[in-house]
Amino acid sequence: MSTPLLSVRDLEVTFRLRGGLLRPTRLLRAVNGVSFDIAPGETLAVVGESGSGKSTIARAVMRLLEPSSGRIHLDGDDVTALKGEALRRIRPKLQMVFQDPYSSLDPSMIIADVVGEPLVVHGRARGADLERRVQGLLEHVGLGRYHMNRYPYEFSGGQRQRIAIARAIALEPKLLVLDEAVSALDVSTQNQILNLLEDLRSELGIAYLFISHDLGVVEHIADRVAVTYLGRIVEEGPAERIFSAPAHPYTEALLSAVPVPNPRIQRSRQRIVLPGDIPSPLAPPAGCPFHTRCPHVMDVCKTAMPAHTPIDGGGSAACFLHDTGVAGGTRRAS
């Protein structure tokens, strides 16, 4: 792999929950020791349940949140500590599409202004040139020019997400962060948007950080997948390997929950049902965060945190089942 476009090392995001008179201030560690790379033009999907910290990762990468520790390099530059004007200047390189297209567009602005705003703010275009470019962007995402003077409330969810994408690619970013960008849409609209994203990637060579809880969607679009649990990445690797040979028990459980569009296969499949809920990030369990629900739990899991171990076929998993360095760890044949 060439030098990564985005490189995240040991990212940690902690929220302070302000206490009251009788409640102490508590720390919520939403993201804990997360590292990953994204190569130019590559799509990395981050998957996990709600509360696993995936949206927090997106917001920290976008520098909409202050990471409490760790480093973020974009295009070789350290952007972790940038603030104010310096941060504004690197913004064009990374843009974001938000989950809810109903709240991410300013209701008081017409579409021409919504889509043209990034160009205006960064002084890239004005006047007739601006109008021409906005028109081009709208056409790029499959919307006609006559939409330009309309307001967001006049559009459907799918159309709004197209508008949000047009706005996000206006500055020709190198990285697009998609935070559950298709989750709020119905299935047929989802497919249209996913196809649009595929087209944009091949045309413009944008890399995607694709945040989703929907493995079915991820399988279509991702080159690589990172699985998060309680603020940590428990497994990461090439999409093909993750979907065909998941190494971490949590990934296995997630995959077994994805419905197969064939009733016969679906009925005969073995579902791995995890007991209980994801533990509160306010009181994460000791040792491996997954040990409270893991079907293969061993004694060592309750006390020690497994390190990332390389897996055959690419990527790594943080699980003692694969960690040959620990006594009692048996390497499963799968």
Binding site: S103, D106, V121, H122
Partner: peptide, 24 residues
């Protein structure tokens, strides 16, 4: 979210107040 979105594209604080917060 649209204010967060405005920050993410690189709008300055003053721009956000005048163009996004005041009209709403």
């Amino acid at each position: 979210t649209y204010v967060e979105a405005a920050r993410s594209i690189g709008c300055s604080q003053g721009w956000i107040i005048v163009r996004h917060i005041l009209p709403n």
